[in-house]
Amino acid sequence: MAAALFVIDIQNDLATDPSSKIPHASRIRSSGEKIISAARAALQAQENNTASRLKTIIFVQHEEAPENGTMVRGSDPWKLVFEPIPGEATERLVPKWTRDTFDSNPGLAAELKASEIDEIIAFGIQSECCVESTCSGALAAGFTVTLLSGAHSTYDSDGKPADVIEREVEERLSSQGVKVVSWEEIVAGWA
């Protein structure tokens, strides 16, 4: 069986725009760059018959109607910081309109399972919104789920700093059966 890496909503509005980015955007961009680079190397090595469970990278892109927010299809805030390589069979873009990627794409779970994928490895933005909802959706769809600690974050909210919210999300997901692993440990395993 195999794993899919989900890169969730690392978009300009949340990760690069000085007026709207999350407080830890630079950490997410930096860890994301390293994770994706290592994943691409692992996928390339797999083509040369070395062992890696990683089978695909899925770039998740949130979009909303103009009256609901800034991430309108085609706009600069909507654009991804990291994009799939055009024509690369092991990478793909998956749009979504709800917090849970699987809810927005009802056939996605069956499609991944048909490709022998049984694990979802997730990171991105926002921890308590789309990251948590997609992890829960993947669990509900029958996948093993791994959340990459240190590679997801959000806004400060309700008097709590973002890093406290990150830990709370990790605790909630862990109690549901999600494995929480540092992104560095996953990357080292792919090397």
Results as ranks from 00 to 15, higher is better:
residue 96 K to E: 08
residue 143 F to D: 03
residue 150 G to I: 07
residue 163 D to K: 13
residue 134 T to P: 00
residue 70 T to E: 14
residue 130 C to Q: 13
residue 166 E to C: 11
residue 93 L to G: 10
residue 162 A to S: 15
residue 143 F to H: 12
residue 148 L to I: 03
residue 46 Q to F: 05
residue 170 E to M: 02
residue 94 V to W: 08
residue 133 S to P: 04
residue 144 T to P: 02
residue 52 S to C: 10
residue 61 Q to K: 14
residue 174 S to W: 13
residue 106 P to I: 06
residue 39 A to D: 06
residue 169 V to F: 09
residue 81 V to C: 13
residue 137 G to K: 00
residue 76 D to E: 14
residue 152 H to G: 10
residue 34 K to R: 15
residue 176 Q to G: 04
residue 135 C to T: 07
residue 31 S to F: 02
residue 59 F to D: 07
residue 122 A to R: 09
residue 51 A to I: 15
residue 149 S to D: 11
residue 114 A to F: 02
residue 140 A to H: 12
residue 133 S to M: 15
residue 64 E to Y: 00
residue 150 G to A: 04
residue 85 I to N: 11
residue 112 L to T: 01
residue 151 A to Q: 03
residue 70 T to F: 15
residue 40 R to P: 09
residue 148 L to C: 04
residue 124 G to N: 01
residue 52 S to W: 11
residue 36 I to M: 06
residue 150 G to C: 03
residue 114 A to C: 01
residue 110 A to D: 08
residue 147 L to W: 02
residue 173 L to R: 10
residue 72 V to N: 10
residue 71 M to L: 09
residue 124 G to V: 07
residue 31 S to P: 03
residue 42 A to F: 09
residue 148 L to Y: 03
residue 166 E to K: 04
residue 158 D to E: 12
residue 116 E to T: 06
residue 164 V to P: 03
residue 90 T to Q: 13
residue 91 E to I: 13
residue 93 L to H: 14
residue 168 E to T: 03
residue 76 D to R: 10
residue 127 S to M: 05
residue 142 G to R: 00
residue 108 L to S: 06
residue 162 A to K: 00
residue 96 K to L: 08
residue 59 F to W: 09
residue 64 E to D: 05
residue 101 T to C: 14
residue 62 H to Q: 13
residue 71 M to E: 15
residue 95 P to T: 06
residue 52 S to P: 08
residue 169 V to K: 03
residue 50 T to A: 10
residue 55 K to Y: 09
residue 33 E to P: 00
residue 131 V to I: 06
residue 120 I to D: 06
residue 79 K to I: 07
residue 64 E to Q: 10
residue 106 P to R: 06
residue 37 S to Y: 09
residue 158 D to Q: 12
residue 80 L to D: 10
residue 138 A to S: 01
residue 75 S to Q: 13
residue 102 F to Q: 00
residue 137 G to I: 00
residue 92 R to N: 08
residue 149 S to K: 08
residue 85 I to W: 09
